[in-house]
Nucleic acid binder design. Structure first.
Lengths: 250, 250
DNA sequence: TATCAAAATTGGTCAATCCAGTCTTGACAA
DNA sequence: TTGTCAAGACTGGATTGACCAATTTTGATA
């Protein structure tokens, strides 16, 4: 391989990838941190020697991965806030490959039973209130399924937060978004929301009591019951409604 | 809200989002399945009434989420093959928020101990060979750390595949990509690869024997040991090498 | 009928231009 | 001196039209 062909192969990188890699490099070096503003698109285009539409395509790719956010007139920023994986990729995957309700619940059991156990082991005092508040919210919205569901999902995320592991939290949030999308279509048909709220309360109490084994048991029982409950909600549903209402934040 | 303002608010969707939503809709309806070819960019632009650069930005966003793949001259296709979440989003998250090795291993324990347990419960005969072959590959490459690592990662993915849950598999693949990126930087310093291979073999045997409890125990023990092993590999490392070598398939 | 080169197709990129929000600046009034 | 707000600069959002490069298709030729 002579110098010329080597040079060519190096220049062979696609321009859009070059934009993504450039931002990735700045992040790796710590020169770009959450909340930071990127240089303007026009400037970035000049720096990298590519056109603005190319830069924009790259920024859209980064935005799709949840790395950046753009505000017209203000600029493009590295996503701030807690570590978060968007629901988009998993939603598309679910729509494309037809994930079943049972498969999703099985994955939830692995993730959330583990998270509940860790949360109980940790026993971080300042993580209790957020969980308890969502339980209270559930009891307060027993007659409003949609609002109940929101508290339900937030309770599960609060548990993952109490597990104090950002990786686990990101995974739980991703899958809980998927659950929310599915469930919000059928939750109106739910009954026994009171029983559901009480199960959540028992999970909370186990975590509060720092009893990992009980926390895992209660979470397992809850998810098993929730699975069959959702199954019954889906029974008499107008055809064509269910087949994966997708798209979270894509 | 009158008709006019309603109309305006509907047209207010950003053009790029419109492209993504359009493809998402086609996927939801089943009109676009894995492996299918999309209509050409020019045609898509005309159909949606947007410009081609806008279409391209949308397609890049979809590609970043692993939904589509474009081949110059051939067309743009819905990603085929097994359900897969790219490593990109998690890698960026890790780089931005500085996930620690221990946090990643803890998340792995939740996911992979669960997967190993499920794999043992299922006991699918046709999933045994792929696992066993990777174990053999490890024993065959005890003196070649980089090759050993590849078999290592593939073994863990094979377990997730044996759990027969595509959601779990996608999550395990995503995090194992992250592990691979990190580990490949330090694996040259590894010793006791033989002990590692033997632990993997014991995990395999437990799954083969359909003993979920033992499978979970062995996986837990393996990950705990692997964590401390990797920690020691990172001890005397040239400064600046570690701080998150990111980027998987972004 | 088989081969292969030309043409059509399709993704990859650039250039220049305009629109639409946001932020900054400075003049004016209280 | 200080507060207010309008004009202008800045920045992302999008379009048009053009050209390049890789692939696929087509059709003429052997």
């Amino acid at each position: 391989m002579n110098d010329q062909s080597k040079k060519l192969s190096q220049e062979d990188v696609q321009s859009v990838d070059q934009v993504v890699r450039h931002i990735a490099l700045l992040i790796e070096r710590g020169q770009l941190r959450p909340g930071d503003r990127l240089v303007p698109e026009r400037e970035l285009a000049e720096q990298l020697g590519v056109s603005r539409p190319t830069v924009r395509a790259g920024l859209h790719a980064l935005a799709a991965m949840g790395v950046t956010e753009s505000r017209q007139g203000a600029g493009t920023f590295i996503t701030a806030g807690p570590p978060r994986l968007g629901a988009g990729p998993l939603s598309f995957l679910a729509a494309l490959h037809g994930f079943t309700r049972d498969q999703i619940f099985e994955a939830r059991k692995v993730l959330e039973v583990g998270a509940a156990g860790l949360a109980a082991e940790r026993g971080l005092a300042d993580r209790l209130a957020p969980m308890s508040e969502e339980v209270a919210g559930m009891f307060a919205t027993l007659t409003e399924p949609q609002k109940f569901l929101i508290h339900d999902v937030r309770f599960h995320r609060a548990i993952a937060a109490a597990a104090d592991n950002p990786v686990l939290l990101a995974l739980v949030e991703m899958i809980s978004s998927l659950v929310y999308e599915q469930r919000s279509l059928t939750v109106e048909r739910a009954h026994d929301l009171k029983e559901s709220a009480e199960m959540h309360r028992r999970i909370y109490q186990a975590i509060r009591d720092k009893d990992p084994q009980r926390a895992r048991q209660e979470m397992t029982a809850h998810l098993d019951l929730a699975r069959s409950a959702q199954a019954s909600e889906e029974l008499d549903l107008p055809a064509g409604v269910l087949p994966s209402r997708v798209m979270g934040n894509a």
